[in-house]
Amino acid sequence: MNALLPLWSFVVRTSVKWPVLRTLAPFVPVVALWWAVAAWGPFPPAFFPSPPDVWTKFVTLMEKGILPEYLGDSVGRLAIGAAVGIGLGVPLGLWVGLSKGAHRALWPVLLFFQAIGDIAWLPILIIWFGFGLTTMTFVIVYTVLFPVILNTVLGVRSVRIELHRAAQSLGAPPWRILTEVVVPGALPNIMTGLRNGLGYGWRALIAAEMIVGTSGIGFLMFDARRAGSVTEIVLGMIVLGILWYIVDAWILAPIEQATGRRWGLVTQ
């Protein structure tokens, strides 16, 4: 045990110097274990590829340009979905949050359509729009939209009445109250909604690409499944995991926290 202490303190010191290492280091033993199981384990390679297999596949697909193209397709679809989802969801959420009548009329409907869930729409969308981009875009927008709307509504309604009153008695007209009080007050919730929405959205995208796609990472994985190429499936999973880890841990979570922390508006 004691012999390991210097090693441990070395790990601690380097990870303080380069924080990225702290994130990456834990994957080293996991990959090592994976390698060991692939090499000496009971599974045939067609069933359980080894890290070098996946790396070789990665290099091949990069050289052929397939992986960059598919990755670009998936990310592009998600970006469009996110943009449309925010563009529609935030104004709608503000409206439903501010208007008592709209809230009474629409809240149950919103909850119900959110409950149906994106993927259940695929069959009827395929009937309406066929296999293709429209269907996929619809599914992603739908998935991103509801968490954004619902959280925006919650955010708007969580702004304390005194803040509205304070702004009014300082001379703010209604539209300034919207921009100066309601929107910033709801912002942490809006970010939470966006983070949840994108979390669900990219899963829906993967499903849609598997079921209706002709390109994209989901399609790559499912096409590989049909061909029985487990290496490509694993590669697809790793690419997805890394991509989403970066988006979530390095972009979405920090934005979400930055809005809430300094203002002391703690969101769970």
Binding site: A204, I206, A207, M210, F222, R225, V230, G236, M237
Partner: peptide, 9 residues
Amino acid sequence: IAWIPIATL
């Protein structure tokens, strides 16, 4: 969802 292909395999 990302596990569906490998799970079915």
